[in-house]
Write a protein that binds this DNA or RNA. Sequence first.
DNA 1: CATGAATGAGACTTCATTCAT
DNA 2: TATGAATGAAGTCTCATTCAT
Lengths: 194, 194, 194, 194
Amino acid sequence: MKQQKPKYKQIIDAAVIVIAENGYHHAQVSKIAKQAGVADGTIYLYFKNKEDILISLFQEKMGLFVEKIRQEIAGKSTAKEKLLTLIEKHFSMLAVDQHLAIVTQLELRQSNLELRLKINEVLKDYLQVVDDILIAGKESGELLHDLDVRLARQMVFGTIDETVTTWVMNDQKYDLTSIAPKIHHLLIKGFGAN
Amino acid sequence: MKQQKPKYKQIIDAAVIVIAENGYHHAQVSKIAKQAGVADGTIYLYFKNKEDILISLFQEKMGLFVEKIRQEIAGKSTAKEKLLTLIEKHFSMLAVDQHLAIVTQLELRQSNLELRLKINEVLKDYLQVVDDILIAGKESGELLHDLDVRLARQMVFGTIDETVTTWVMNDQKYDLTSIAPKIHHLLIKGFGAN
Amino acid sequence: MKQQKPKYKQIIDAAVIVIAENGYHHAQVSKIAKQAGVADGTIYLYFKNKEDILISLFQEKMGLFVEKIRQEIAGKSTAKEKLLTLIEKHFSMLAVDQHLAIVTQLELRQSNLELRLKINEVLKDYLQVVDDILIAGKESGELLHDLDVRLARQMVFGTIDETVTTWVMNDQKYDLTSIAPKIHHLLIKGFGAN
Amino acid sequence: MKQQKPKYKQIIDAAVIVIAENGYHHAQVSKIAKQAGVADGTIYLYFKNKEDILISLFQEKMGLFVEKIRQEIAGKSTAKEKLLTLIEKHFSMLAVDQHLAIVTQLELRQSNLELRLKINEVLKDYLQVVDDILIAGKESGELLHDLDVRLARQMVFGTIDETVTTWVMNDQKYDLTSIAPKIHHLLIKGFGAN
DNA sequence: CATGAATGAGACTTCATTCAT
DNA sequence: TATGAATGAAGTCTCATTCAT
């Protein structure tokens, strides 16, 4: 954990709000500072530069994200149940935090390649959770014994991500969580061993 | 044989190269002009502004993209074959044009929201092709009669897109086209009626 | 006379309209060409450059202006009558041509210093007419025998010009010509010999 | 002793010098910044944009201008004396600051209409001082009881302005202040009650 | 620790003018 | 004569980061 100081979290939360409300390209450091209730210069006592704020934001939020999903699926026994839990939790956590949904699905993708590669590093943790489920499913015989894990993972993540992005672009005006079982059904039908 | 609007195409092709090689944020109009072999000002005889270059680029390329896919699938009779053709064609066209792949998968996504919404408009055409295949498949009995077309389309597009993006981010170092049948197999297994 | 070709006048008249309607800084050569119904390049067969259009415009219009005033005052015998005629004619000619009034009072003054010095050269002809009236008046005993002609001329021209400018800036919404006798009265009271 | 907004005044004074020496159209922000001894960006901490510098310049200088004239004429009892003071002060303040004279008489008039309308707003304050003198003169019986104040004001301002402009255009090579009494004499002769 | 005034690099677009046809 | 497509120079403003207090 990078810092435990209250201002560290203050600034990250301020960044989420400012980016969600103003868009990535209008989220100046000075605005984030103002929202966080600190001086511009103070930002640089907690973060190396602006990019560091964004990476930290993603790490912090995605860290919680993965941690919660791990906890939830730990209680499930089958790959099938675990996958459903992952999709449901993914959707519900974003449905609950509109600002975060906008930031991760739309705004942060406007960042430059370098930053996005770093963000991808963070994402690997999430993708590992998916892989773990798929591998366990193969071993238990629930899923196709010759399932291409990388491919299936891209299918899972690609579908979830596209679904959430479409939902955010449609101003989050329909219920996202109710889609989870349907997606789960189609994916399991595709991956299933029978 | 007289070329039609030669400079227009020249500039768009130059833009693809410059963006692919320099990245979205370093693709200055002057660089595009130089690559196209015209003066900076000439750009503005063919495009309203820089954003207009990017939208036109996407329209032009995606237009060809969709057109070619439509042609190819027109020769196929079953939804299953059509879907395979779509995925194969999608992959092969991007595999053949490395610059275009980088631009559409990575660089153009760094554009601001407004531009991306316009790009999404262009994408609707592509998504319609997917929908047409799925609907035909439902009617013919090949696909689940109660398949949620929107959901399935997000699954198809999300999977294809994520697969291509991963491939581009890995510097296109493995063969993309060979993945097509595998993805197709999984999708059809998921959507199939049996 | 520079040219007798019809296009020469066409272009000048087009310039007056375009400048009056779009303002000095938005009066591009291409707009003037379009208004005149000729190609951009054609302008340069009749004028050396853009500045030459403006100077020629001023010369042409101010030439007619001075000529007409000269004609009118030639028929008057006293300096007093001549001055009244000059003011009246000055006002009435601008009141009749709204576009010209806007161009000479507001728009042409936005030109750079160099151009304005050339315009001033053209104005000297007009100022000479004023001087002639004042000198004749001094000699005839109508006006103060020790009247400072340069000063009085600045007073005449400054007053007329300020009056017209104020009128144009007020959207020409009151009657300009009716002010002429009042101004004349005050000026003559100031310059008169008694 | 702490200066108040030192940079603000620094920049305005720098603008006067740069505009006077380079002309309105060659007075780039970077030149003004350099002359003021600050970075380009610093300008924008004190002014909204370039136009704002010019308006502020005019307000600041014209504000002082009007204030000083008001102070001087406050000590005079008759309208006649007040008018003389106004003309003398107007002339002497510009004679003393050659740069300012060039800027207000020549350069600032090249600005676009929008800016000039804003400048005119500032001028109203000055014109009010003239009106006050004329009205007081009418009431005291010094000036014609039926004097048209607006007309007379245009005559006063038009004459002064034309005189100064002519003087500046002649490179300020003769003594401006010595003209004041002569102009005053002619104006009073024109407006006087006797 | 905290502040916030100051810095300065960097790019899109316009439009007068040319010249091959 | 007439055309009009092509040229290319030039300047305002933003905002991440620093550093003296």
